[in-house]
Design a protein around this nucleic acid. Structure first.
Lengths: 102, 102
DNA sequence: TCGCTTGTTAGATGATCGTCGAACAATCCA
DNA sequence: TGGATTGTTCGACGATCATCTAACAAGCGA
């Protein structure tokens, strides 16, 4: 399997993060990660195919929002909270808070 | 000139706001509005045509980020700070802060 | 009224996006 | 080794997007 490239903390781009968060499916993924922590790709119950979901995971990972690790046949995804809080303080928190009410 | 429709405070959608902010040109407009307050459309010095800029202004307005008023032949644009802070507390502030460093 | 200025709209173009089914790759287990 | 499982990649599809030029609309001043 090809190497997963995800940006380093200082290379996370604001526009990419905002764009990634502007899609309902991806925002739902981020919200679930924020609420329940790391989880396997296959455990997200969203109304889409695994191909589409895989695409969204890629966008999230490449934007710097998520970290992905392989374990056997599974892929575990988690939010890069520390990196995001360090790079863009308050951003993720306010987005998650906004998503809760919107 | 046709009526400008802009959403009411409670109708501002998070996804639309994030999407509007994910474009470099629009983010630049928002940053300038945040820094210098209300200004006329024609005073933004950005590397694009006035037609393209007009399109971006429309996206910003319809997302709820900006307010537009007509005065004679001019259009004055301003950030809807109060509405945004009320609807999505901390969001705009953290985005602007992030944009400053990014 | 006539020109000038400001900004929007129409139409077109190339690029990108979200989505899907199908094929492929990687891992595990019997 | 051979199947089963998990997830990615490929190719294609319509839809949407950012951009441009040109034309249009609205207001102002001479």
């Amino acid at each position: 399997m090809r190497a997963l490239h995800q940006p380093k903390r200082d290379q996370i781009q604001l526009a990419a993060v905002l764009y990634a968060l502007s899609d309902p499916t991806r925002l739902a993924v981020v919200r679930q990660l924020a609420a329940e922590g790391e989880r396997a790709c296959g455990t997200f119950e969203l109304p889409t195919t695994k191909a589409t979901l895989s695409h969204h995971f890629k966008v999230l990972r490449e934007s710097g929002l998520t970290h992905t690790r392989s374990e056997g046949v599974y892929r575990f995804i988690s939010l890069r909270r520390e990196d995001l809080d360090a790079r863009f303080p308050g951003l993720l928190t306010s987005v998650l808070k906004a998503a809760r009410k919107a």
